[in-house]
């Protein structure tokens, strides 16, 4: 049975008239990587701050694992929260005139890491974030990316069971982002639970077991990516051809395919087929049903006799589309509710 390590129940945070988080119900299971996705101001950081005890919820409760398999209110077991959880929230800030070694040592002592283990833990954390060379340099000399990596180091230095990471890739260059992704994969391999919020949807789809989408403080979806994809009304197939199509024939072919697969595409006015000369091939948008996919394949190969060498569902853009679709639907619902309230 999967053990719950964090449970948010009816969690709410209000700032005067603004509801930052609205009746959030969410569970995080041991050993999983849960991606927390949403637009700016959706309530991701507020939720994480409430979990870390940085802000008080207006109502609702947060329960965390207390080590023996049962859940306890986070406020009642603060030492469990400090020791079992590691937080990287927002843009991390440190006292400028100390060194990473000193600050990590300070955190280790605060968290009760045994004296003889402190140096080892510091070395381990700095090695993971690749800051070993800078361990004795003052933090004020660090770049934004280095501070972000140090932020990650302070979150894991005491080897917590749960890492709460709020947009850990913010402000990082592509190389550093890859490095951070590798760190998260390493933590996942170590069996750690990760609660990760990010704008980098690709990163999320790469490492997360489940995804929770939040908008205007409300949780609008939470499931495995595969299951969420099933719920999408529109899905995409990437079709790769052996060789590019003669430019003069592209429009005619696109029109022909569109006509033939019309029954399997969404009921909108958009053309369900787009030719991409970079592949070379097509992006085909359909209703997501497995039977439709089978039929489209048959039309392309048997009816139109196209030289297809690749036929697959596109994953990298899946989450982005899913995210946009869910958030847009939620926005429409929100606007309609507001109009009704005004009436």
């Amino acid at each position: 049975m999967t053990q719950t390590v964090v449970k948010f129940s009816e969690l709410k945070k209000k700032y005067h008239d603004l509801i930052a988080v609205n009746d959030l119900n969410l569970e995080i299971y041991q050993g999983e990587v849960l991606g927390f996705v949403g637009p700016n101001g959706a309530g991701k950081t507020t939720t994480m701050k409430m979990l870390g005890g940085l802000i008080k919820p207006t109502s609702g409760q947060i329960e965390i694992t207390n080590g023996n398999g049962s859940l306890a209110k986070a406020r009642e077991v603060p030492s469990e929260l400090y020791r079992r959880f590691g937080f990287l929230i927002d843009i991390p800030a440190f006292y400028g005139h100390v060194t990473p070694r000193k600050i990590l040592g300070y955190y280790c002592r605060l968290l009760g890491v045994p004296k003889e283990k402190i140096e080892k833990q510091i070395e381990w954390a700095l090695k993971i974030v690749k800051l070993t060379r800078w361990k004795n340099k003052k933090i004020k000399e660090f770049s934004k990316g280095m501070k972000q990596r140090l932020g990650l180091a302070q979150a894991i230095v005491h080897e917590p069971d749960v890492a709460v990471l709020d947009e850990p890739q913010t402000g990082l260059d592509p190389a550093a982002r890859i490095q951070v992704r590798k760190i998260m994969k390493k933590l996942k391999d170590l069996g750690k639970t990760i609660f990760l919020s990010s704008h980098m949807l690709y990163e999320i789809s790469e490492i997360c077991d489940r995804i929770a989408i939040i908008n205007r403080g409300e949780l609008i979806a939470v499931d495995k990516l595969v299951n969420l994809e099933q719920k999408m009304t529109k899905q995409e197939i990437g079709v790769e051809l052996l060789e590019p199509i003669n430019p003069n024939n592209v429009n005619k072919l696109v029109k022909e395919i569109s006509e033939k697969i019309k029954a399997f595409s969404e009921n909108d006015d958009k053309i369900p087929v787009v030719y991409d000369e970079n592949i070379p091939g097509f992006h085909i948008y359909y209703d997501g049903k497995p039977s439709s996919r089978k039929n489209i394949h048959k039309i392309l190969t048997s009816d139109l006799k196209l030289p297809i060498i690749g036929f697959s569902r596109v994953r990298t853009s899946r989450l982005e589309e899913l995210y946009i679709e869910l958030v847009e639907n939620n926005e429409i619902k929100y606007t309609q509710n507001n109009k009704l309230k005004r009436r």
Partner: peptide, 13 residues
Amino acid sequence: DKGTALTNFTKTG
């Protein structure tokens, strides 16, 4: 003001 509370207060009461 400087944001050190974000790291410090998640480690101690």
